[in-house]
Structure formats: C-alpha cells, structure tokens
Design a protein around this nucleic acid. Structure first.
Lengths: 135, 135
DNA sequence: ATCGGTGCAAAGGTTTTGCAGGCGG
DNA sequence: CCGCCTGCAAAACCTTTGCACCGAT
C-alpha cells in the first residue's frame, strides 16, 4: 500500500481519534458507532476502508483473536493481547521478548523458514476474577 | 458440549475419515468437496455441524490462522502450524514446549490469569523456498 | 484540476439455523 | 421409540466493492 498518497480527510481523522480514545480494542462496527456520534452520515464502508489504510500504514493494529471478526488498536507499541473467556474483553499484556526466544528455538527445525509469529492469550480478566471470588 | 450422547452416523464417520486422509488442513468447504465424492447428497451444513462436534469432542482441531475462515486437522497431538505467505499452504511445525516457558514468563505479570496460549507462524514453505532458488 | 475518498447499497464469503423428516442406539 | 441427526434453504454475520459525486492537496 502506498502510504504517501493518502489524504487526511475529516472522516479518517475522526476514525483515528475515536480509536485512540479507547483501550477496548473495538471492532469495525463498534468504532462505526463511536464515529457516527460525531459524523452522523459516515458510512460503515468508510470506517472499514480507513481502518484498513490506518493499519496498513502503521497507525493502528488490526487484531484477529479468533472471534470471527477483526479488532483494532491505536497502541502500536509492542504488546500482546488476552481475550477473557468469560466476558470477551480484550486485555493488553505487557511485551516480553517471547518472539525472539521462540524463533531461536525453531531455527533449523524444519525445511521451512519462519518469518513471523502470531501469538495471543486466553484467560480471565481482573474483573471476572473478582466476580469469581464473591459469588 | 455433551459428547456422550453423540451418534456415529454415516456422515460423521465419513467426515472424520476424509479429514484423516489429508495433511492439508482443509477448510469446511474443501472437506465438503471430499465428502461429497463419497456421499453426493451430503449438505454443507452437515459438514459444518460434524466438524463442530468432532472438534468440541477432541477428535479434531479447529484452526484459525487469521485467514477469515477456519481449518480443520485430525492430528490432535500437540503441534503448531505455519501458513506459507506465498502459496497459502498450512505446514505442521513440530511441538516444542513453548507454551510452558511463555506461561512461566507471564506469571505474576498482571492481575489477569492466563489459561491458554494461541500461537502460529507465518513463513515460507519448503516448496516455495525451492522456487525462489531456481527462478 | 487531479485523483484519492466518500456515501450508498449491493454483493461476497463463511458459518449458522429453522424446519420437517430420517435413522442410530 | 426417543431424540439426535440430516438435507435443504434461508438467514446471519462480517467485510468488500461498484458507482457517481465530493473534496484535500
């Protein structure tokens, strides 16, 4: 994708601003609802197109946590994600250099060449742990 | 899911048999095509329902490699998967105890509790590496 | 003025589901 | 027989796309 010829339209600006406002890792549809509060005539297609461009150009992350839909994150610093199996929330997991260690372990393991590692976690978030303790 | 009250129908048997015949990690639709050669009247819905039951009951794995569709694997022994970014093939990656090490590193890292790690790889398969060498 | 972006709506691809009838245990 | 399972088809769901107009640079 050619990121030089992209224009900073009002819609694109608002999409990125709304994404930066939250740490909830919204889906395209959830973000569409936020954006719509500021731009009532925006279309879902525009939100999808802008999220595609923003993530392709390094201003957002496109996440696939195996839910059958993508999520987006304006925090592009290295970190991982955990999906709470009880409430579905997506929680940030601090970065530790897992991937380098994994690549080291896999070097010379087969006749293929590993370029990238996709990794995420499943577990129980802080809120759901609290609920378990006080039923 | 209640795996005790499942019946061994002819369709379910054939779905599992066809899945065991291949190492290609087929999608539901691809498996439907295989099954249809033996059961011309089988429906896609039946293949989906049986794959759901078989994977829920530990007789198959349901894989999500971020392609927007699920894949299935009759090999349930611990191993990982790599998707070739050139040809799309899914390659088995031998098991190494990554997950235990990762869990150790993450212990006490936050207020959440990690239960499971989802991990897969992207890279270049043996066949595509060969093609690169002889263009 | 150019050409990337937008809104709208339709279409695309994958997966699920309601229903009436069928068959495994 | 009971009730899980099937085939069929429609629908659900997420995402992409064709088109004509608009607006950022």
């Amino acid at each position: 994708m050619d990121c030089k010829n992209t224009r900073l339209t009002h819609q694109r600006k608002v999409v990125l601003e709304e994404l930066k406002k939250t740490t909830a890792h919204p889906t395209a549809d959830e973000l569409y609802e936020s954006v719509r509060k500021r731009l009532p005539n925006v279309s879902l297609g525009t939100v999808y197109r802008n999220l595609e461009i923003l993530s392709a150009c390094g201003q957002a992350l496109k996440l696939d946590l195996g839910e059958g839909k993508k999520r987006f994150d304006a925090t592009t610093d290295p970190h991982y994600h955990m999906r709470c199996t009880q409430c579905g929330r997506i929680i940030d997991v601090p970065y530790i250099p897992l991937i380098e260690k994994i690549k080291d372990q896999l070097k010379g393991m087969g006749k293929f060449k590993i370029k990238n590692v996709q990794i995420h976690f499943e577990g129980i978030c802080e809120e759901c742990l609290k609920k378990e303790q006080t039923p």
